[in-house]
Amino acid sequence: SEYETMLTEIMSMGYERERVVAALRASYNNPHRAVEYLLTGIPG
């Protein structure tokens, strides 16, 4: 799925699956924002 592709691409940058899933959830599946959250911390 498109979601799995995003997940895999972000994980390939060296992040753990659960952190990527949390970041995508926080960003409403916006991959650019999710990466930003992984770099700066997930808000909330």
Rank of each mutant, 00 (worst) to 15 (best):
Y15W: 12
P43L: 12
L24G: 00
G14A: 02
M6G: 02
V21A: 08
T40F: 14
A23G: 01
E18Q: 09
N29V: 04
P31L: 14
L39W: 05
E36W: 13
Y15R: 01
V21I: 14
H32V: 15
L7R: 01
E16H: 06
V21W: 04
S27K: 02
S27V: 07
E36L: 13
A22W: 07
S12R: 12
M6K: 03
E36G: 05
S1T: 14
V35D: 01
T5R: 15
A23E: 01
S12G: 11
V35Y: 07
L39A: 09
M13A: 04
I42V: 09
V21L: 10
Y15D: 01
E9I: 14
A22I: 09
G41L: 09
S27W: 05
E2A: 13
E18P: 06
Y15G: 00
I42L: 12
E16F: 06
A23L: 03
M13T: 02
T5E: 12
N30F: 03
I10G: 01
N29E: 05
A23V: 03
A34S: 02
R17V: 05
V35H: 05
V21D: 05
Y28R: 14
A34N: 01
V35R: 07
V35S: 03
A34K: 00
V21N: 03
Y37V: 05
R25E: 10
R17G: 03
A23Y: 02
H32C: 13
Y37D: 02
P31W: 13
E18S: 10
R33W: 11
G44D: 13
P31Q: 09
R33M: 15
M11V: 07
R33A: 10
R25Y: 08
N29G: 14
R33V: 15
Y37R: 04
G41A: 10
G44W: 12
A22P: 01
A34G: 02
H32A: 15
N30E: 08
G41I: 09
E9F: 15
I10M: 07
I10D: 00
I10Q: 00
A22T: 06
A22M: 08
L39E: 11
R33Q: 13
L7E: 01
S27M: 07
R19K: 11
I42G: 10
V20C: 04
G14W: 06
Y15H: 05
R25C: 11
R25L: 12
T8N: 14
A26H: 09
I10L: 14
L38Y: 02
Y3P: 02
R19V: 12
G41T: 10
R17H: 05
A26Q: 07
T40D: 09
G44C: 13
L7G: 00
L24K: 00
M6V: 07
E18H: 10
T8S: 13
Y28I: 07
E18R: 06
L39I: 12
P43V: 10
V35I: 15
I10V: 03
Y37F: 12
A22V: 07
Y28C: 15
G44F: 12
S27Y: 06
M13R: 06
R19F: 09
E2C: 13
V35M: 13
G44I: 13
V20M: 02
M13C: 07
H32K: 14
S12C: 07
I42R: 08
V35G: 02
R25W: 07
R17N: 03
T40E: 10
P31N: 03
Y3K: 03
E4N: 09
R19Q: 15
S1W: 13
P31E: 05
G41F: 12
V20I: 05
A22G: 04
A34F: 04
G14N: 02
P31C: 11
G14Y: 05
Y3H: 05
P43F: 11
V20T: 03
E16D: 13
E4M: 11
T40K: 12
Y37S: 04
V20Q: 01
M6S: 04
I10S: 00
A26D: 05
G41K: 09
T5H: 12
V35C: 08
R17D: 02
E2S: 12
A26V: 09
G44N: 13
G44Q: 13
P43I: 11
I10W: 04
L38F: 03
S1G: 10
Y37M: 13
V20G: 02
E18V: 07
T5Y: 11
G41S: 10
Y15T: 01
T5D: 11
G14P: 01
G14D: 02
A23T: 02
P31A: 10
A34L: 04
I42F: 13
R17E: 05
Y3W: 11
S27Q: 03
S1I: 13
V20F: 04
I42T: 09
E36P: 01
A22L: 09
V21E: 12
M11N: 01
S12V: 06
